[in-house]
Amino acid sequence: MIKAQPVRARSGRRPGQPATREAILAAARSRFAEVGYDKASIRSIASGAGVDSALVHHYFGTKRNLFIAVARIPVNPETVLAALQGAPVDELGATIVRTVVGVWDSPAGAGLVAALRGVMAGGQESLIRSFLLDIALKNVGERVDDPPGSGRTRVALVASQMVGLLAARKILEVEPLASMPLDEVVDHIGPTLQRYLTGPLPRASKA
């Protein structure tokens, strides 16, 4: 009688168990912080976690979902992304303010502020930077890249304004901005963002 041989686990690979998810998150957090969202591949993250790439997809589906889990973002960014993608270019400034501040003011807003505090306190500022520039505003940057090469600068200016607005409205609670109605916030901040996005940019100073 032929005896059945025991199945050997592949060396260097973690089995599909609860600890695997945490190992993937840890590897992803390190990789995203090191090289940013665009350059971090699922394969490199899987290698860092000691698992197959298929397991990363099993637990998180896509790289974007994995990043959201790493950054502990408590809302689905697709809500924001869909609104921005559907807005005409000449209305992007107002749309960004209305959509993003609307999320901050929703029940999920407290979770977003907590996530931001946690990432900043943990020394992972690059995660927030990567989320803003490589996910949330990447499509916007491509749409307003006029003259060519200016898109990144434009969305960086928008990000600076929105981060400052978040701090003033939700963290420092500076009045009257903290309790200002959403429509009024849009009226004040929207035109500034629109100028960053589609207005003329000063020439870079010569060294």
Rank of each mutant, 00 (worst) to 15 (best):
T20M: 15
R21N: 05
A27T: 04
R29G: 10
S30L: 11
F32L: 07
A33M: 06
V35Q: 14
G36E: 06
G36N: 13
G36S: 15
K39R: 14
S41Q: 08
S44T: 11
I45Y: 02
G48K: 01
G48W: 04
A49W: 04
A49M: 04
G50Q: 11
G50K: 11
D52P: 00
A54N: 13
A54M: 11
Y59N: 09
T62D: 12
R64E: 15
N65Q: 14
N65D: 15
L66A: 05
L66D: 03
I68C: 01
A69H: 11
V70A: 12
A71H: 01
I73N: 11
V75R: 02
P77M: 07
V80S: 09
A83I: 02
A83E: 13
Q85L: 09
Q85N: 15
G86D: 13
G86V: 03
A87N: 04
P88G: 07
P88W: 05
P88Y: 07
D90W: 03
D90G: 03
E91K: 14
L92E: 09
L92I: 02
L92Q: 08
T95W: 01
T95M: 03
T95Q: 05
I96Y: 12
V97W: 09
V97K: 08
V97C: 06
R98Q: 13
R98D: 13
T99G: 10
T99R: 11
T99Y: 12
V100D: 04
V100M: 11
V100T: 11
G102C: 10
W104C: 10
D105N: 13
S106C: 08
S106K: 08
P107T: 08
G109F: 01
A110L: 06
G111H: 06
L112C: 09
V113K: 10
V113W: 05
V113F: 05
V113C: 07
A114H: 08
A115W: 04
R117Y: 02
R117N: 09
R117Q: 12
G118N: 11
V119K: 05
V119I: 14
M120E: 13
Q124W: 05
E125Y: 03
R129E: 14
R129F: 04
S130P: 00
S130V: 00
L133I: 06
L133N: 05
I135K: 02
I135Y: 01
I135E: 06
L137S: 02
L137I: 02
N139S: 12
V144D: 08
D146C: 02
P147H: 10
P148N: 14
G149I: 10
S150T: 15
S150D: 12
R152Q: 14
V158G: 07
A159D: 05
S160Q: 13
S160T: 09
M162T: 00
M162S: 03
V163F: 11
G164V: 01
G164R: 13
L165H: 07
